[in-house]
């Protein structure tokens, strides 16, 4: 399965390298766009030197985690993002007549490396924020940061899967999902707690974006010392269970209506 994934990976790269100019323009465009996001945070701190008690470098760490998680999702779970198209052109029917898992094929068939622009921007921000944040990078802290990024990508992928599951039923009005995906990414520039208690609760218990971002950040900057905070990102993985259930319901609907 891993070997096959690497095959898919190679064929995706080969496909996209057919249009090198378009690829690099796309990449460059994404870097510039995400630069605007980072600059926004920067300008905010020119006026206020703390936001809810977080310093600029702490917030930048948060920005980079969210950006990196989101860009991993954009690159590797792209198939769910364009899912209505796969249903429309019959590509999804092709997956159903092949002896491989359907989710696996959606993920493997569509990778979009142009979206690595945001990833590169996130790396740049990390390069600045990691040494300047004043955090002593012991192994537990490094593990925490790693879990934040990986689990973040999982939560965003879950949101993409929910979007795809809805598109089994309708293609109208799906834009509301953007509030959670793009909205989640944009608001995720800052620790989710600054938007108030209600929103933090929502982002903890319903759509667990705060579990990979805000709570482990508290551990990183030593506002919380309990090692349980290292594991909060892992809790967010439970979100994938309802996502999978949604997907199954959508798939069953599709197989009974074919549209």
């Amino acid at each position: 399965m891993v070997r096959l994934y690497l095959k898919y990976f190679a064929i995706n790269i080969k496909s996209q390298m057919q249009y090198k100019t378009a690829f690099f323009l796309h990449l460059f465009g994404r870097i510039m766009l995400s630069f605007a996001t980072v600059a926004g945070v920067w300008f905010m701190f020119l006026r206020f030197n703390r936001v809810e008690g977080f310093t600029l470098n702490q917030v930048l760490l948060c920005t980079a985690v969210t950006m990196m998680s989101y860009s991993i999702t954009e690159v590797f779970a792209r198939g769910f993002d364009i899912f209505p198209r796969l249903l429309g052109n019959g590509e999804f029917d092709r997956y159903l007549v092949r002896p491989r898992g359907v989710i696996y094929q959606v993920i493997a068939t569509h990778m979009e490396f142009g979206r690595l622009g945001v990833f590169i921007q996130a790396v740049i921000v990390f390069c600045y924020a990691i040494p300047n944040s004043g955090i002593v990078w012991s192994p537990d802290k490094i593990l925490t940061l790693f879990l934040m990024i990986i689990c973040g990508a999982a939560v965003f992928s879950g949101l993409y899967i929910i979007f795809a599951s809805f598109s089994f039923f309708t293609v109208e009005g799906l834009e509301f999902m953007n509030i959670l995906t793009h909205g989640g990414k944009e608001f995720g520039r800052y620790p989710y707690a600054i938007y108030g208690e209600g929103i933090l609760k929502f982002l903890t218990f319903i759509i667990p974006l705060a579990l990979f971002q805000y709570y482990p950040l508290l551990y990183l900057i030593e506002r919380e010392s309990s090692p349980l905070y290292i594991l909060t990102p892992l809790l967010s993985m439970f979100f994938l269970v309802p996502c999978y259930v949604f997907w199954k319901i959508g798939l069953r609907h599709y197989k009974s209506t074919g549209s």
Partner: peptide, 17 residues
């Protein structure tokens, strides 16, 4: 696959099946 030589698609199908 639209943008790659046909034989690459065939090789991928070999691995899928």
């Amino acid at each position: 696959w639209w943008d790659v030589p046909v034989i690459d698609s065939f090789d991928l199908i070999r691995d899928i099946y």
